[in-house]
Design a binder for these strands. Structure first.
Lengths: 400, 400
DNA sequence: TTGTACGCGTTATCAG
DNA sequence: CTGATAACGCGTACAA
């Protein structure tokens, strides 16, 4: 006939029933080896392709996993998505991507699509702000995993961490939602801030500065890591720079202003690679050499970090793994999680501030009464390029 | 009951038949206004969601459009994908993304998935090399559109364009496949090369250099544009730099070697933004100032082009539009294509070389006898940032 | 204007 | 080990 080739065709060609074909194709043990081979061969010959629609209608189990990203315009999300697709593929699932560019209408539409497609597992990549989508998704009965949720945080908390005592409220930051039953997969921002800072300290630096991020969770946590590392070293307090985000110019002038009243060498921990690049530009224009006068380390390891001038030392996010782990969290039931990245609190309780951003109340363990709530935290990795160097004593001419 | 809410539920709740519900939901004219409203309201109340699987099974028309990308790891593809999703959405289609990372097995699997999902329209974003997937897709009866296909091209052609007469074979480059019935949507590489070059010439530059790309179609075409613009200005020949790709270091040393035997000011047209960044690094290390000593313009306008140091002047690809137009080409039948970007030859016949890379034989028009083959070409846009400046006479101290 | 009945391609149940 | 047969949720001829 004209249409696609179906099971009936295969069955007819072999003189068997469609039931037999169906069984042979799914390796049902109750089938003779001979017929199975015959079916397989014939299916191959006539180019048979099972109809996903029919199968789903019958079994009610779509092997579909919904993925919402805010935007796939930058490389970061793309890398995570690759991790998701890879792992989903291994588990026989098909990701269904939807880019909701922070628009409420698109998010709503995404949910509609997922519902129509009978998607039961949902991954949100780096959602910022609006929790409606996720709430509605769990309300509809979906299992959801969130990668690097980055909600807004009061500016007051930043002030406290920058120059004050850390209130207990900050302890709640990074808490896995308000008891929403969803998995959280996240990069360890606190540890990243610490790692960047200790790397610089290990190079002999004693004069630090942090170019902080926007008023969101990751911004606060990275700042916290900066402070914690410095406190452990007995070097706290150190300056923290604030700029309007995501305006590149604002960041540059903030750095420029700082450099004007400082002397080399200075060690900078930037909120992320983009902030680090702004610092690179400001330094260049101010006549500071990188890394000789200014060492700077970024966080994230975006693709471009290796192309900056000079190449950027940074703490890399395990982007693929973040994606893969989200899939695991959704698909593999509690118990045998492929061991990678420790499971536990986002930032362990440290000497300064006693902050365990993971659990608000309990003694910080993988939480959730019935296993609905879960947090997996992945460490970053220090990538050393050319933007950091040992702190050298200031030469006479540099000091003028 | 336990399962999802279906049309039967809505019908039962209203005491009507499922047929009525079905009709009311699709605005069938043969339905009373009263019942329609009642159905709509009830559907709303009970949170009814149509089953995509059932609908597809019944109508055999999935509103699915397959999208293969090689990798979504860099921002470029992400932008195009956004354009695809946006336009597909407008037309009531749902994109189904698949990242085949240049791996034959993944490409094959992608096709299987599309076939199982009964996808009949396929978009390939920036495929490089292997045409098997596309061939098989059309063999399976899919309509396919290709965005910026970038096949390999003999190195000999580059030599001809760089320093020789342009053979007629080059005329065929950029021909829309070997008569494969598929639409091609592409960025005008020749025009981009010309635009970058004329911008520089307009700034007063007379000493040029091109850092060429890999041995692929776009690399050849951009080089061609460079030559054409220069020829029109009476400035040809000018040097062309070759480097191993995609090795950043190789590019840098190629540029460094060139700078060593040249004097400022020099105007460079780089194959793409990444190549331009390599040039920036090489210039920096060689002590050349940008843009004072070396003006450089890239092509593509990747996200990072505005973050380089200094900001990169470049010819932007209309990434969103490329995606949107691919959807249009597939979904809207011949006739009323939303006018954007001229339709026509990739590079018009010019004074030098007489190359119209679009059509191999005919007088260069939107080709295809039965409308199967079609080419849409989109122009780039010059984005002026800080990496280009007027050519200033060499000062005495610079000339040593 | 609405209801009835059938079939899209699979899989699962029940006989044989 | 294999074959009928029913049902998944929906759309649409056909009849009323």
């Amino acid at each position: 006939m004209s249409g696609r080739v179906t099971m009936k065709d295969v069955a007819a060609a072999l003189g068997v029933s469609t039931a037999t074909v169906s069984r042979a194709l799914k390796d049902d043990p109750a089938i003779s080896l001979a017929t199975r081979r015959a079916v397989l061969e014939m299916a191959q010959r006539v180019q048979y392709r099972p109809s996903a629609a029919a199968r789903r209608l019958r079994t009610k189990s779509t092997s579909l996993i919904g993925v919402v990203v805010q935007s796939v315009g930058d490389g970061y999300v793309g890398e995570v998505v690759l991790g998701i697709q890879g792992r989903a593929r291994d588990l026989g699932y098909q990701p269904l991507f939807f880019a909701a560019e922070e628009r409420a209408d698109l998010e709503s539409e995404a949910l509609d699509v997922f519902l129509s497609e009978q998607v039961t597992e949902l991954i949100a990549v780096s959602p910022t702000g609006r929790p409606e989508l996720l709430r509605r998704a769990v309300a509809e009965g979906m299992r959801v995993a969130v990668i690097n949720a980055d909600a807004e945080v009061p500016a007051r908390f930043f002030r406290e961490v920058t120059s004050g005592t850390i209130s207990s409220q900050i302890t709640r930051i990074g808490s896995p939602g308000r008891g929403e039953p969803m998995c959280h997969i996240r990069f360890d921002d606190v540890a990243a801030g610490e790692l960047a800072t200790t790397h610089l300290a290990g190079l002999g630096h004693r004069a630090f500065v942090h170019l902080r991020g926007p008023n969101v969770r990751s911004g606060l946590l990275r700042l916290l890591g900066y402070r914690r590392a410095l406190t452990a070293l007995g070097l706290w307090p150190q300056p923290v720079l604030t700029a309007a985000f995501p305006d590149m110019g604002s960041r540059e002038s903030a750095v420029a202003a700082f450099l004007r009243q400082a002397g080399p060498p200075v060690a900078m921990v930037a909120y992320d690679d983009l902030a680090a690049v702004a610092a690179l530009r400001a330094a260049h224009q101010a006549g500071w050499r990188v890394p000789e006068d200014l060492s700077v380390v970024g966080i994230d390891d975006i693709q471009f970090a290796s192309y900056t001038n000079p190449g950027l030392t940074t703490v890399a996010q395990p982007k693929h793994e973040l994606g893969a782990l989200a899939v695991d969290a959704l698909l593999t039931r509690r118990g045998a999680g492929p061991a990678d990245g420790r499971a536990g609190p986002d930032g362990a309780v440290g000497p300064d501030g006693a902050v365990g951003p993971d659990g608000a109340v309990g003694p910080a363990g993988p939480a959730g009464p019935d296993g609905a709530e879960e947090v997996r935290v992945l460490d970053g990795q220090l990538i050393i390029r050319e933007s950091t160097a040992p702190a050298m004593p200031v030469t006479r001419e540099e000091a003028q």
